[in-house]
């Protein structure tokens, strides 16, 4: 098992190098951070000085190696826009995004899996059919529209929940959380629903179709023939056999939640990494964008590793083949 994890981590090194190269290279050729930073009035000399100061007069590969070298030492560079260390900026924003993404994931699992089981078992009931129709809306409505609709209804018309921001947060050294204050929790509800809506409906539909598949299988028929209770059949024998594909999708979707919470964070002015990224893109803040992409790559690598480990936990057939 240890060898497996080590091999996986080694495999991820070239992936991360490639992501670093592509992200840095891509951003190095888009936009002009110097102009954005200098503002309206500047002389040619000032511009030259700025370019030199940022190291942008060096050849591209040197810039890249320099970036890489610094990253390996935990230095992600200075933000062009805010003139602050990128590592610090991201560390500030990371808790907000993680809190939002994990809340959305938990929400989508807690609702999606039971509803998927329900619609899979009672597929002909009116309620299940209604849920399936509703889930189509969740799958097909774009996130920003859901967010705006939720704001309109719950913040503007009903005035129940705040329409933007994160509320009050509590700080623990490097981490901050809104879960401990009531305004923080209230502020989290709408963004979490917005972000989790698509995942929830996706999980619902996935669990449902997997349940339908498994319920037809011989071992479920045999479980019935042994007189096991409905509960045991549905949850011990059927649901566990749907877990492999569900874990795969949920893992990937969690990565998506973290990586692409941009839209939700923009709609709700959520002070997370996504909002930071959008603001950075506007002024071609290369260090922030590159570091962000690198971080997302790390997130995906870690999630994939966790997913693989969960496979072993769930499926004894895999345990006996490799792993030890």
């Amino acid at each position: 098992m240890f060898a497996f994890i080590l091999a996986r981590l080694l495999q991820s090194v070239p992936v991360l190098l490639a992501v670093a190269f592509i992200s840095y290279g891509m951003f190095a050729f888009v936009g002009d951070p110097v102009t954005a930073m200098l503002g309206q009035d500047f002389t040619a000399a000032e511009r030259q000085a700025m370019i030199h100061q940022l190291g942008l007069d060096q050849p591209f590969y040197l810039q890249y190696l320099h970036f890489l070298w610094n990253v390996l030492h935990g230095d992600f560079g200075l933000s062009y826009r805010l003139a602050r260390p990128v590592g610090e900026l991201i560390a500030e924003r990371l808790p907000a995004t993680m809190e939002l993404a994990v809340s959305a994931a938990v929400l989508s699992l807690l609702i999606g899996v039971p509803l998927g089981v329900f619609t899979g078992i009672n597929r002909n009931s009116a309620l299940a059919r209604g849920l399936m129709t509703l889930s189509l809306i969740g799958v097909s409505l774009p996130t920003f529209l859901i967010g705006i609709l939720l704001i309109l209804v719950f913040a503007v018309l009903l005035g129940w929940l705040p329409s933007f921001g994160r509320g009050d947060v509590v700080h623990f050294s490097h981490w901050s959380t809104g879960l401990l204050t009531s305004s923080g929790r209230r502020a989290l509800i709408l963004p979490a629903i917005t972000l989790g809506m698509f995942q929830m409906t996706l999980i619902l539909r996935l669990v449902r179709s997997e349940m339908l598949e498994v319920m037809r299988s011989d071992h479920i028929k045999f479980a019935r023939a042994r007189g096991l209770s409905e509960h045991a059949i549905h949850f011990h024998h059927a649901l566990s056999n749907t877990l492999i594909p569900v874990i795969t999708i949920v893992g990937l979707q969690l990565g998506m939640l973290i990586a692409f919470s941009i839209v939700t964070e923009t709609v709700f002015q959520w002070p997370g990494m996504g909002l930071l990224l959008v603001q950075s893109i506007g002024v071609a803040d290369i260090p922030v964008m590159s570091t962000y992409l690198l971080l997302i790559a790390v997130v995906f690598v870690v999630i994939n590793l966790v997913v693989d480990l969960l496979y072993f936990a769930v499926d004894p057939r895999l345990r006996s083949q490799g792993g030890r």
Binding site: S217, D218, A223, P316
Partner: peptide, 13 residues
């Protein structure tokens, strides 16, 4: 049942 390869739950001892 007929096919012992599919009548047992693969995930349970």
């Amino acid at each position: 049942f007929q096919d012992p390869l599919t009548t047992l739950d693969p995930l349970m001892s």
